[in-house]
Structure formats: structure tokens, C-alpha cells
Design a binder for these strands. Sequence first.
DNA 1: ATAGGGTTAG
Length: 512
Amino acid sequence: MAGLWSSIEKKCFSLLQQKQSCISLLQIHAFILRNTLYANPNILTKFIAACSSTSFTTRFDHIPGIRYARHVFDHIADKGDSFLCNTMIKSHNDHHQFDEALLLCRYLRRGTHFMPDVYTYLFLSKSCSSNSYDWEGRQLHSVVIKTRVLFDVMPLRNVVSWTTLISGFCNDNDIHSARKLFDAMPEKNLVSWNAMICGYSQSKQPNEALKLFHELQYNTVLEADEITIISILQAIAALGALDLGCWVHKYVKRKGSDKKIKVCTSLIDMYAKCGEITKALHIFEGIPEKVTSCWNAIINGLAINGYGEEALTVFHDMISEGCRPNAVTMIGVLSACSHSGLVEEGKRWLNAMEHFGLIPQMEHYGCVVDLLGKVGCLDEAEKLIESMPYEANDIIISSFLSACVNWKDLSRAERLIKRATEMDLLNAGNYVLLRNLYAMERRWDEVKKIKWLIRTSGAKKEAGSSSIETNGVVGEFISGGTVHPQWGDMQPVLEQLPIHMKGMEEQCIKLQ
DNA sequence: ATAGGGTTAG
């Protein structure tokens, strides 16, 4: 193909292949216009990719490169070239403009001759996984399925395309399909392993994540990196497997990764979720340059361990050190207030969010509804639900409903249930709460009615479960007496419990 | 001459 290019086209292409400053990119743009190189889609593609990875700062103006790239793209008459369109879609992804990527693709399909190919779908899998809201229902699901279809007939599949598809399936919560692909891959690298391990961690299968991590270490020559560690710490935190967590901490120290702030943030989170707030604080204090995320981790860590006041103190430190809070910080702050019943502080910080340039999201209102419900201000909680600029979701409904149950406010609960039913927001947990409430009031007819509703609606409540770690093995207990199959009988585990606790005690003494 | 993996919440 390149052999047919004119010498001017070749010159332009080789200029674009070097990393260009913004001024020279503007010059190249002028060059393209002057020499009517617009007809060559490969040059345009290269130009757009180059713009997208630069930013245009002149004496008068500052234009992000992606905006310039999109501007140029929008003025291209013939958008039939999929390589060109894919590059524009990917550029939006690279700038975290996932909604833009999706909207562009939709526009191109409706208004041009653009035919999406397997690359388009691989990019879109990423856009759909990361965009802020799923504005077409199960969009990710259909994109991943379509990607799979095109992937199966793709002539040149390599480790990158396999891995993209695996993480697409993970994000779509189809871990089973992801694993089947993973096992079928002709060649795996660390990124593929990380994608799969992370998939397990995030879809609440922490034991599988740990198993795979173990396999990575013993069956391959690959060495875990920071991303592996972060994923594995997530799994450990979910299990509360402190022994394993300590082991990972030592491993990280040995590798020198404990200097990496993201690893530290994950360690703080893991220790806090395992109830070891002292260790979490120790790591936090050792971080020389604290960024927002590590403040967030410790604030939330203190909050979930019941140290609400301390969490607020740390939040004040954060502000006085000039670190800007973000939306996640505020969830930590508000949940700290909720965990410790700090009503006035909670309301104040919700209202003060705009001083930090933050718009309260549903989750922030959720924390305050939770807080008001916990302390029995049901009226105020209900008013907040009604006045907030979002429709309540099922999580807020559950939280408020359980507050009604706690404070035995049956009529309020019924009113809420009615509304939630109309909005199709009743999950099985909500039915169970209501059933318990009726049972408490000895209204057996209603109890029967709810039981019938639960049966017929097909709603399933996941059984509550807890896990325990002995000798580095994690077992799971499911409420109602069934035991995780790997344990067979619960008895031997219970017998080990005192030994396990003794071991922990000794460990604590050693560390002090 | 297009491609992949990560933290913080309820």
C-alpha cells in the first residue's frame, strides 16, 4: 500500500511518526490542507492519534489535543474508514471520555457508512465497562456478546485481544465465560492473569482469586506485579483473611513495592477491613506524600471500625494540609458520621460538599438517609429521600426500611413498601424486612401474604455468610447451618478456632 | 499501521 503513496504523503507520514509538539502539529495540519492529503485516511488517522496524545497550548489558548482531534475528525467528509473511526473512538477512551466514545459510535453507525469491526467492539467493551451510567440498559452485555462473535472469526488473535475479551466478560459479571476463555488461551502473560484474578476479586469470588494467584506463583515463571497485589489485597480484605494479608505485606516489603502509594492504599484498606486499624494507621503515617486516595482509605477505614470522630479529625487534617477531597472522600466522611451517629456533622458535610466543588450523588444522600434512620429521625430521612434530586434506588429503600423496622414504625414502612413496589424496587431483602416487621407486630395474615409474595416473585435472598481463616485456609460459613463444601463438617473447624485465636494473640504480642 | 490488567463506598 505504502508503495503507492506520493513522496509528499510519505514525508507527511514520517513527520507524524515522530513525537510532535503542538505547534508542529498545527503546521502539519496546514501541510495536509495545502497538499490535499485529506483523501488519504491513513494520514488522517495518524494525525488524529498524534493530536489526541498532545495538548495545544498557544500564547492565547489552551486546547486539549483530544478536542482538536475530534474537531478535525468531525470535518472529515467520508467517515467510511473503520481504522480512522476506531482511532477516534479509542482516543476518547484514552481520555476517559467513555460516554463520548459510545455516542460517537452510535452516531457513526446511524449517520455514515462506518461498519464496526472487531477492533471497534474491543474498544467499546472498555467504554461500556467504564462509563458512568449504562444509558441503554444492558449495553455492556450486548457489546461483549458481539465482541465474542467477531473475536471468534478474527484472523489475527493475540494475547491482547484475548485479554480484552476476558476483562469484558469479567466486567459483565460473566466470570464463567471469562474463565473458559482464560483456560483456552494459547498464550498468557501477566496482564491476562491480572485480568482474571481481578475479575474474581471484584465479582465476590475472593477464594477463586486467591487460588489463581497461587497458581500464578507456582505454575508459571511470571512474577506478580503491583496490580496483582492490589487485586489480591481486595480479595483478602473481602475475606478478612488477616494471616494472608500479613504475608502479602511482607512479600510487598521484600519486593520494595511498599514504596508504591497505590499498594499502600490497598494495604490500608485491607488492614482496616480485617479490623487491624492500628496497622492501617501505621502504614498511612509512613506515606511521605499523601494523595487523596490514601486519605480516603484511612478515613473510610476508621469509619468502618467505629472511629467516627477520629475519621473526622483525619478529614480536617487532610483539608488543612491542602489536599482536595473528592466524592469518595465524602462518602467516607458521611459514613463515618453514620457509623458513629454524628447527625449534625453529617448534615453539615452533605451541605458543605459544594464548597469543595462536589455535587452530592445518590450515594451521599444514601449515607445521610442511613444516618438519620439509625438515630430515629425517620421523618427527616423520608423528607430527604423526597427532596433529593434523584429517584431513590433499592439500596436507599432497604436502608430506610430497616430503620422503620428498628423503630417499629409500621405505617411508614407500609407507605414506603407501596411506593417501592410501584417503582419495582423491592428486592428479596426488603420483603424479608417487611415480613419480620409484621411478625413483630403479630400480624400473621400479612406475614403469610409476604411469604407468598417472596415465593411467587421469584426473589431470592442470598444467605448471610461469614468466613474464617485457619492455617492460611479460608472457609465459609453460611447462615442456617449449611457449611461450605470444602469444610465437609463444621466440627473440626470449630475445634481449631481457639488455636487460631491463640496464634493471632501471639502474633499481636510479637508485633508490639 | 488500531488492542489488554489496578485502589477508595453503600
